[in-house]
Write a protein that binds this DNA or RNA. Structure first.
Length: 541
DNA sequence: AGCCTACGCGCC
DNA sequence: AAAGGGCGCGTAGGCT
């Protein structure tokens, strides 16, 4: 195993260590190095498997390359170390390898893993690409912001590996009791629970026709024959239907979804040793949100959250940033009225009091419409109120929408950049504004809604990532036991010995403040993290 | 059989 | 006048 010596630099010698994990351990304890590697999702599990400690900091070349390419308007170029190095050398770029799950790649800087040509020395390439990335960061419009973004993204990569390995505490017994209560005893051989078959029969009786309740193509005509004309079989539409089959179908949908998506088969696939271990994909969403592979980790139904139970003597510290996106809009736009509302704990209530005659639901709809670009129904009217009372906030989102409609790109607070619209999804026809309903125009408006939301969602992700990185560092300061076990957009769960839960809760609050300061500077907007110390996730709401 | 899209629903 | 953002993943039903 090789490691670049401290005084090495691009031309310096590399050192060879028979036991790299031990050397990494020694250096991590001796100082606070920032480890530079091609991709944390490959190198870090490999090191942890061999006894390396948790590492404080890293620079993930692949993730940083993705951020820089996006910022430079080259979203679709390959991001691997080999591709970045080939661009530096003026060689043809290799395609990125297909994303895949964990593997047992036995070496850290193996050329083929990163699409390096056979004659390239991986360590030389890594050093050269890292240096070039530092120059590109320094040359970006806001170097401090881009540096922070790259550091937070890289820290996120460490947290993602750790969370995927630690897993979310999951009680098979509680889960089983829930399933049995809803679906009856587990049928043998993966068969459909009797409750579902029974509901299907009752639906057929009610409709007077044999239908598969899972098939909208069969259900719609069956309802039509019964005199009920529906545009779709979506739940919100069925809820307004008097026909007895509607209620039965709604119950069927609810239960069959639990069975199919989070039933016994799901648990056998994803829960081992009392832990649900999804694979987090950092940078999996262009806005900077994480994705997951397998297990649907970002959609754990509320109904099943009672199965998330702390170990004996432990607690879950559950923290979520309420109303994050409107607070982000307030902080970024500097809108005086919205910032005043965002200086309070319940932003929507403050907004309602200040501008919507105390009607909180209408205030919420108006604000969401501004951020999502909704104008149908009541939203259009509420939007007019928003525009009059919060002009700076509306100007920000509407400017982002216009940029997108014209084919331009927008950036988050820290510089994460929206992709340019692809030619097949978008053609600019602003020269022909009278043709209001043309497919091209609709596509442009759709892209405008995307960029409108991007500036908010991506800046919220900036904050969340900075918060996660700060929290991870603060938890390490408490000790080895408190562990991040879940992260979902604006929510984190820490699993900790009960006696440390108070310290963990304090660390959460401090991390939120730190993220606000780092990402948005000295703004009055609050980003409150609601923190609950519980034994069971379901008790946190 | 595998691959693709449409639909629908869970989460934020 | 009208225009609701981002995901993962299940089944159905068509295709090769």
């Amino acid at each position: 195993m090789r490691l670049l010596s401290e005084d090495g630099g691009p031309a310096g010698p590399s050192l060879v260590y028979p036991d790299l994990a031990a050397e990494v351990s020694r250096r991590e304890a001796a100082g606070s190095p920032r480890w530079v590697w091609a991709a944390a999702d490959e190198a870090y599990p490999w090191l942890l498997d061999r006894g390396a400690p948790r590492l404080a900091r890293c620079h993930d070349v692949k993730l940083v390359e993705g951020l820089l390419l996006g910022h430079e308007g080259r979203h679709r170029r390959p991001r691997s170390l080999g591709a970045a190095w080939a661009r530096l050398e003026g060689r043809p770029e290799p395609e990125d390898p297909p994303e895949s799950g964990a593997d047992d790649q036995p070496v850290l800087f193996a050329a083929d893993r990163h699409r390096l040509p056979p004659d390239a020395d991986p360590l030389t390439a890594l050093v050269a690409v890292h240096a070039a990335q530092q120059r590109r960061i320094a040359g970006s419009g806001h170097p401090e912001r881009m540096r922070l973004l790259c550091a937070a993204e890289s820290a996120g990569a460490l947290a993602a590996v750790e969370m995927g390995r630690d897993g979310l505490p999951w009680s098979a017994r509680v889960h089983d009791d829930l399933l049995t209560g809803l679906l009856g005893p587990r049928p043998a051989g993966g068969a459909r629970p009797a409750v579902l078959g029974d509901l299907a029969l009752r639906i057929q009786d009610a409709l007077g026709a044999p239908v598969n309740p899972d098939s909208p193509a069969q259900v719609l005509p069956a309802f039509a024959r019964a005199g009920v004309h529906l545009a779709s079989t979506r739940s919100h539409e069925l809820r307004g239907v008097e026909h007895p089959a509607a209620a039965l179908l709604l119950r069927y949908k609810e239960l069959s979804r639990i069975h199919a998506a989070h039933g016994w088969a799901w648990r056998e696939a994803w829960v081992r040793d009392g832990r649900f271990r999804p694979e987090y994909v950092v940078g999996g969403v262009v806005s900077g949100r994480w994705a997951t592979r397998g297990g649907g980790a970002l959609q754990i139904p509320r109904l099943l959250r009672s199965a998330v139970v702390a170990d004996p003597g432990h607690r879950l510290v559950v923290a979520d940033a309420g109303q994050l996106e409107p607070r982000v809009l307030a902080a970024m736009s500097g809108d005086v009225g919205l910032a005043r509302a965002a200086g309070e704990g319940d932003l929507y209530a403050a907004l309602a009091r200040d501008a919507f005659a105390g009607d909180r639901p209408r205030a919420k709809i108006g604000l969401l419409a501004a951020m999502y670009g909704q104008t149908s129904g009541e939203a259009g009217q509420l939007l007019a109120v928003m525009r009059r009372r919060f002009p700076a906030a509306l100007a920000l989102v509407e400017s982002a929408a216009r940029t997108g409609e014209a084919g331009g790109v927008v950036r988050s607070r820290l510089g994460r950049t929206s992709p340019a619209p692809s030619a097949d999804r978008f053609r600019d026809d602003t020269a022909d504004p009278d043709d209001g309903a043309s497919p091209d125009r609709r596509a442009a408006r759709s892209w405008g809604r995307f960029t409108r939301n991007f500036v908010i969602q991506a800046s919220a992700a900036d904050w969340a990532l900075a918060m996660l990185a700060a929290l991870r560092r603060r938890l390490a300061g408490i000790g080895p036991e408190p562990r991040l076990v879940f992260f979902q957009h604006d929510e984190v769960i820490v699993h900790t010995p009960a006696e440390l839960a108070g310290l963990v809760a304090d660390a959460v609050t401090a991390a939120g403040d730190e993220a606000r300061r780092l990402v948005f500077g000295p703004v009055r907007v609050l980003f409150p993290l609601q923190t609950h110390v519980v034994e069971c996730y379901a008790d946190a709401k």
